[in-house]
Design a protein around this nucleic acid. Sequence first.
DNA 1: ATAATACGTAACCAAATGGATACGTATTAT
DNA 2: ATAATACGTATCCATTTGGTTACGTATTAT
Lengths: 106, 106
Amino acid sequence: MPQAESDHSVFRAIADPTRRAILDRLRQGPAPVNELASAFSQSRPAISKHLRILRELRVVSEQRHGRERLYRLEPAELKDVADWILPYRDFWQASLGNLKSYLENE
Amino acid sequence: MPQAESDHSVFRAIADPTRRAILDRLRQGPAPVNELASAFSQSRPAISKHLRILRELRVVSEQRHGRERLYRLEPAELKDVADWILPYRDFWQASLGNLKSYLENE
DNA sequence: ATAATACGTAACCAAATGGATACGTATTAT
DNA sequence: ATAATACGTATCCATTTGGTTACGTATTAT
């Protein structure tokens, strides 16, 4: 039964490099779809699909403005990622500490 | 030309919930494959494939010990994720700040 | 009223993903 | 020497992913 339980977490959202780039761009402020599409040398529908995924996971919000749709960063959901990664921090800090000790020939 | 440039970043590695669970388990110490496999109700080869991906991205290391292979967490590469997410922190803190102001009826 | 613009969606497709089963190999137990 | 154990890998398969082109619709410009 090949079924991956279709993970709809924000981890999937940021797995794609294009979506990460979109989010990075949106950190500098909201943008309409065309601007994003022209920035990433992909077709506009492709970007639309990425935006749909980000929308459904609440990582961005859409605000219609005339015939444009402004996409805005909604970083709250990204906190899940930060929370997940936090405990690992101790580990690589420990590793760096060990390396430091080693280099200092302690 | 459907080619996603086959992203081999650590973001792909942690996109899968099983792999995240494996990493979470390894935070408590190294483990042989069978222990991991039995923990996740998947076939052992499936876990082996996940471990291969984590190995190739240097998120875990393998240490042969007799006929067992101990897998150990190597969290250094996860730092990329932490570094990427860091700038977003300002955003959701700002959002929380706004919410706080709003609730305090400022 | 008509044309142009700014999107979303549908349909389609190749490649990647994630799983299973079958098999091979090195190491330990008997 | 033989059997059991602990893996990795090969092969296969269904589903998902990420892209395309074609098309429809709402809004603005002429």
